[in-house]
Design a protein around this nucleic acid. Sequence first.
RNA 1: GGGGCGUUAGCUCAGCUGGUAGAGCAGCGGACUUUUAAUCCGUUUGUCGUGGGUUCGAUCCCCGCACGCCCUACCA
Length: 518
Amino acid sequence: MSNEQSSQQNANNANNEGTPVDENHVIAERREKLKAIREATGGVAFPNDFKPDYQAAVLHAEFGGFENEVLDPKAVHVSIAGRMMLKRVMGKASFATVQDSTGRIQLFISKDNITDENKEAIYDAFKHWDLGDIIAAKGVLFKTKTGELSVKVSELRLLTKSLRPLPEKFHGLQDQEVKYRQRYVDLIVSEETRATFIARSKVVSAIREFMLENQFLEVETPMLHPIPGGASAKPFITHHNALDMQMYLRIAPELYLKRLVVGGFERVFEVNRNFRNEGLSVRHNPEFTMMEFYAAYTDYLWLMDFTERCIRAAAIAARGTAVLEYQGRELDLSKPFERLTIVGAIQKYAPQYTHEQLHDTAFLRAEIMKFGTKPFDHAGLGALQLALFEETAESQLWNPTYIIDYPVEVSPLARASDSNPEITERFELFVTGREIANGFSELNDAEDQAARFHAQMKAKEAGDHEAMFYDADFIRALEYGMPPAGGCGIGIDRLVMMITDSASIRDVILFPHMRAES
RNA sequence: GGGGCGUUAGCUCAGCUGGUAGAGCAGCGGACUUUUAAUCCGUUUGUCGUGGGUUCGAUCCCCGCACGCCCUACCA
């Protein structure tokens, strides 16, 4: 009875805003312990006066190599802090494993080694600390008889009481939903998850470094756009109150980055989020990270070479090699990336089609319908070939492959080929059957660009909701003259998936988009 | 939008096409001064996702719904 009453009270304490709290007997027990700590410490239950001078990985690196006969006489004094992940109490002595951001280190806690005169009380308190508590220790390094580097603890403190139990210590967190929704828990218990996001960080810094080495200037352009542009996609719509105007979260930074090239920043890049109001899948998240860059006096051929080197550098920085394994299959980024035209890729991966068939619009239209896709009525030869490519070849492009010769009608911002006005100087990079990058020689003819925007507006009127808007200021910028340039966007999330051998984009985004919790 | 699989203790999972639920971990009590998921003894804990239906009786069978994962489609 009294037990039930007190746990009820505690739940109410935590619930002072009327927010629902999923209380259970484990949490109730821990709240009781915290209450006792608050009373015993006179209010400072969460002290912040401890500064560790070592981290776990540093200890292992610096002292892990010594035998105890060498280590013991050195009497290396260390102080460390972290989350208690394992605890083994054996009467008057105990072991605890503490985890910090670099790894784990074992503590050996024996009542006799504690220097404080209240050693008895400290040790008894420790016995009731829980897995997940954040603790601090000072002591001397030694090796156990099984050779594990450990700290012989002389001072021990509880810094932060953890109120919620961690997932089962051996199997860890198995529920995929909880891994995504409560990433903090996933990070606490999964070394693999931590490694993925450390790799992601390395990929991003390697890319930054690569861009800076190549004289690119990092810039930040608007995320709130009055006109969404730079890609064909449905935008998120929002409203600015003070100006009483509709705004859009950006679907791409392209048109702003090109304005900067007009302004004289000849090499610019931006690593930031794009937002697209579309479906979710293992390779789509409504907000995703793109590295987009523009370089004056370059073209799509230069871009392909450059992008290839950039991706290779990122893989090596994160994994130490460009020969990777993805989902059990070798993925080789070390060799020059293959280059195929759209038609060439169909011929290679779907050789049942003849040259004549691939240039017969009626045949192509019928063939595409067989895959359950209906091409736009106004789709020309190039668009039909592209649609067939997507149905037959795209998913088979495992090792890095550049697909080139995209038709003008689906590339409203790309420069047309000088030799064939129907196609553009554009490429998309495919790896593991997925689009990773998209780049082209930029269209810098303001009048041509204006005409292409008009064509897009017509398509929009004809029902193509994703056709682009007319951006008059962008045309005005081009009218000042943009130097010939190449530009490319690399999907960072998909690149990180590939490099970290992750099956889902959600595994490489810390807090992926989820339905609202019920 | 369609299909498949899943939802049982705080966590990881059992539960025989029907008789109102179990184990391990965690917790609590006890033993234990070199453990490694420590061990040993004892012990607490459940709206079986949710709403209906069938049945004397449903965690189990049927239908709906919610949420999740995967596939697929839409969306360039």
